[in-house]
Design a protein around this nucleic acid. Sequence first.
DNA 1: TTAATTCCCATGAAAACCCATTGTATCCCG
DNA 2: CGGGATACAATGGGTTTTCATGGGAATTAA
Lengths: 162, 162
Amino acid sequence: MALEHLFQGSALNAVDGKGRVSIPAFLRGVIERRGDARTIVLAKHEAFPCLSAYDPAYAALKHAKLERLLEKEETSPDAELEYQQRNLMAFAATEEVPYDSSGRILMPPMMRRKGQIGEFALFLGTGETFQIWNPQLLLDDKRIPEDLKDIARFRLEERGGQ
Amino acid sequence: MALEHLFQGSALNAVDGKGRVSIPAFLRGVIERRGDARTIVLAKHEAFPCLSAYDPAYAALKHAKLERLLEKEETSPDAELEYQQRNLMAFAATEEVPYDSSGRILMPPMMRRKGQIGEFALFLGTGETFQIWNPQLLLDDKRIPEDLKDIARFRLEERGGQ
DNA sequence: TTAATTCCCATGAAAACCCATTGTATCCCG
DNA sequence: CGGGATACAATGGGTTTTCATGGGAATTAA
């Protein structure tokens, strides 16, 4: 799998009283270059206390990948079950939300809870996908490299200073 | 990984009041020969107090390399975490900035601080990538060869003399 | 009606764009 | 070989556009 357009960079945006958040323009650019949807798919991240996000085109790609995996290991008895589990996670446990003309989504309450997103959402590009964090949780996580925490701190300062 | 076009040479350019800097034309030439993007990727250098910069094509190459590494090292829990960390550093901790028709970028405030770039930016080609230094920090660094410092001094004089 | 959701418009700050100037290196022609 | 003309690079400044965000009106649901 070699995607042409990759998510990269960081931004800290506010979640307003109605639950709206702007998806940073540089991430929207990638989404719209990968496909023509103005939509993102949200899921709980597998390892970190944050959300994982991507475009519908990438979701389709991921599905195809799972299919191929199944066909290879079809002789194993566990393979079928594992496939079903992954498929459930990949589709049932996700939500697809469109963003409006100004680039905002309405963060679904369930995802907001899963990702423990409060007043601010920290967006982090990670290549094929991007992540959405409660900035404080990122600062508290021991597995996150210090250099990345510096970035989170900078984004918080940038905002607080004004 | 063998890139055909390599970054080389040095230049000292001014950062103006708006935070704009001209990317030296000889570096832009390499970027545009490697791919057709008029864009550079900025990151904090791992070892030196300066910025590391390259073109998006090089970033994609780096990403592909990481992907292959993951697939080889099975799915051990350690390998998975390490992959996540590297991915975060490679993409979230970098910024992609386009340069305009006159070859200037707007140096992002975060990178400007990370690289401690002040009024002047010293560009140094290093083959696959190039570096952007605060010239004074280069002169103060004990690890930098004296011959290279001479080049920095020359570039500074060149400018000061006028 | 009340509450919640979707649209639509307003605004301030920041970023992208456009045009002008200057200096320098290159080229061309006598 | 000189001298002017030319092209391009770096930089300054002003204008327009975009972005993130707030708030209200219109629409739908309960």
